[in-house]
Simulated scan of single mutants.
Amino acid sequence: MRRNCALTPGQLLKFYIALVCLSLTVATGFLLAGVKIILIFTAIELTAVTIGFLIYCRHALDFEEIEISGTRLLVRKFIAYKETVIEFNTHWARLSQPGEHEKIFFIEQTGQKVEIGQFLRREQFKNLISELRPYLG
């Protein structure tokens, strides 16, 4: 399950470079025309865009992965460049039934609990739960 992102970090970098070149070209044109104040606004614009793109890139590669192998259930989450891996036994793991409007559910087993489903649409959510149930005890 992956985050729905329109651009990969590589595509975003190309777009960012084009945006910076265009902004600096326009700012240089105004500077040559004698309007020096435009440099301040260009710097503010590029700073804001840079911060926004950095936040976007930080989460563009986020994913959740569930792997079932025999009696082993492995949940791997990669959120904001931090990877978490939790292992469950399929005989003891349980699914928490999500509420009507909840966007996530939990897989839990004796003190361990992990939230799953933050990247899914509602119709995918129910399919995932129905696929997981037969494997869990």
Results as ranks from 00 to 15, higher is better:
residue 1 M to K: 01
residue 5 C to K: 02
residue 6 A to K: 14
residue 7 L to D: 05
residue 8 T to R: 07
residue 8 T to N: 05
residue 8 T to V: 10
residue 9 P to L: 03
residue 9 P to S: 01
residue 12 L to E: 15
residue 12 L to N: 15
residue 12 L to S: 15
residue 13 L to I: 14
residue 13 L to P: 05
residue 13 L to G: 11
residue 16 Y to V: 00
residue 18 A to F: 04
residue 18 A to L: 06
residue 20 V to N: 04
residue 21 C to W: 06
residue 21 C to T: 15
residue 22 L to F: 15
residue 23 S to L: 04
residue 25 T to L: 04
residue 26 V to R: 06
residue 26 V to W: 08
residue 30 F to L: 11
residue 30 F to K: 09
residue 31 L to Q: 13
residue 32 L to W: 14
residue 32 L to F: 15
residue 32 L to G: 07
residue 33 A to D: 09
residue 34 G to V: 01
residue 36 K to Q: 06
residue 37 I to L: 09
residue 38 I to P: 06
residue 39 L to F: 11
residue 39 L to R: 11
residue 40 I to K: 10
residue 41 F to R: 02
residue 43 A to W: 03
residue 43 A to M: 05
residue 45 E to Q: 04
residue 45 E to N: 03
residue 49 V to N: 14
residue 51 I to H: 00
residue 52 G to Q: 11
residue 54 L to F: 11
residue 55 I to D: 05
residue 58 R to L: 14
residue 58 R to C: 07
residue 60 A to G: 05
residue 60 A to T: 03
residue 61 L to W: 00
residue 61 L to P: 00
residue 62 D to K: 00
residue 63 F to T: 07
residue 65 E to L: 13
residue 65 E to I: 04
residue 67 E to W: 05
residue 67 E to V: 15
residue 68 I to F: 10
residue 72 R to E: 12
residue 73 L to H: 08
residue 75 V to W: 08
residue 80 A to D: 08
residue 82 K to M: 06
residue 82 K to T: 12
residue 83 E to M: 09
residue 85 V to W: 06
residue 85 V to H: 10
residue 86 I to S: 07
residue 86 I to L: 05
residue 86 I to F: 01
residue 86 I to K: 11
residue 87 E to C: 09
residue 87 E to N: 13
residue 91 H to R: 07
residue 91 H to F: 06
residue 92 W to R: 03
residue 93 A to M: 09
residue 95 L to K: 10
residue 96 S to F: 10
residue 97 Q to C: 04
residue 98 P to R: 09
residue 101 H to T: 14
residue 102 E to Q: 14
residue 106 F to E: 14
residue 106 F to C: 13
residue 106 F to Y: 15
residue 108 E to S: 12
residue 109 Q to L: 01
residue 109 Q to R: 02
residue 114 V to S: 10
residue 115 E to Y: 05
residue 115 E to R: 11
residue 117 G to Q: 06
residue 117 G to A: 06
residue 118 Q to G: 13
residue 119 F to L: 10
residue 119 F to E: 05
residue 120 L to R: 13
residue 121 R to W: 04
residue 123 E to G: 07
residue 127 N to F: 01
residue 129 I to D: 06
residue 129 I to C: 02
residue 131 E to C: 03
residue 133 R to T: 15
residue 135 Y to R: 14
residue 136 L to F: 14
residue 136 L to M: 14
residue 137 G to L: 15
